[in-house]
């Protein structure tokens, strides 16, 4: 277990100078981007998200402008770059980190708003195997996890309601608080855990495994309860994610193909 380096304590209030936005669900995106722009936040984005923000007449940089690397491999590789992850993970107040950021031209990213390729919905819709695989988001969870780890400096949002909370804080305080960033980080890891749980469940179902070595599933909080069986027991009600079991003929097509011919598959390009 690596010991924690002797970092200076994280600041409570962190202003947001630069935000990275890459969303599949664009609900409220333009409003959020506009508010950030009005607050003087520099916007960086990817693919479809960048286009949507630009089309709304807002200044936005493409992540490729930062990294100097083009988006490649059908979008599989676009944010997986030290410029992005260094900007997320760098401990601003640690002299060595600061020096590395300066030496390599890594600019800090203070806010990340990423919601993931809709793997769960794609899988539930009975999409074919290749489409399901192509909708496994890699760059998104990586950015979420980097940002969440560095919650001392970075605020991470994975759904519109998170973003709304951050915007409220920025409008009221001009900064995010450490407690808000911690809350967001905890939610973010819950989100990526649920996402991976959905992927592993889909894989297990595809392979016909009824007892996978690790059975992961994520409940979604519906509501907390007044109490459990007894008043001294805290309780909450969780909803299951949609079952991954292939039931309809369409879902059966989600099974692995043995040949390499992937003729009719046109992966719906994730929109970010």
């Amino acid at each position: 277990m690596p010991a924690a380096p002797d970092f200076p304590p994280a600041p409570d209030r962190v202003p947001v100078r630069r935000a990275l936005i890459s969303v599949s669900d664009k609900t409220g995106l333009i409003e959020a981007a506009r508010t950030l722009a009005e607050l003087g936040v520099e916007l960086v984005s990817t693919g479809g998200t960048r286009k949507a923000i630009a089309d709304a007449g807002l200044a936005v940089k493409d992540v490729s402008d930062l990294t100097g690397f083009p988006e490649m491999m059908d979008g599989r590789v676009k944010t997986l770059h030290p410029i992005v992850h260094g900007g997320l993970l760098g401990v601003r107040d640690a002299p060595e980190h600061r020096a590395a950021m300066e030496a390599h031209g890594i600019g800090a990213i203070d806010l990340v708003y990423v919601n993931l390729y809709p793997f769960e919905q794609t899988m539930a819709s009975g999409a074919d195997y290749e489409t399901c695989v192509e909708n496994i988001d890699i760059g998104g969870p990586a950015m979420i996890r980097s940002a969440a780890k560095n919650h001392g400096y970075v605020a991470v949002c994975t759904e519109p309601s998170d973003m709304a909370e951050v915007l409220e804080a920025l409008k009221a305080e001009g900064a995010t608080s450490l407690s808000l960033r911690k809350t967001l980080a905890a939610r973010a890891y819950g989100r990526t855990a649920a996402y991976d749980a959905a992927i592993s469940a889909w894989f297990a179902a595809t392979l016909g495994e009824s007892a996978p070595k690790r059975l992961a599933f994520a409940g979604e909080l519906v509501q907390t309860m007044r109490y459990g069986e007894n008043p001294h027991q805290a309780a909450a009600f969780y909803r299951f994610p949609r079952p991954p079991a292939p039931a309809s003929p369409r879902r059966d097509s989600c099974r692995a193909r043995s040949s390499a011919t992937t003729t009719s598959t046109t992966p719906t390009r994730p929109s970010s």
């Binding site: 409940g219 459990g228 001294h232 805290a234 309780a235 909450a236 969780y238 299951f240």
Partner: peptide, 14 residues
């Protein structure tokens, strides 16, 4: 277990 989900509660350690 409940339909469509589950209830989680802290153990009764009383």
């Amino acid at each position: 277990s409940v339909a469509g989900g589950f209830l989680v509660q802290t153990r009764d350690t009383s």
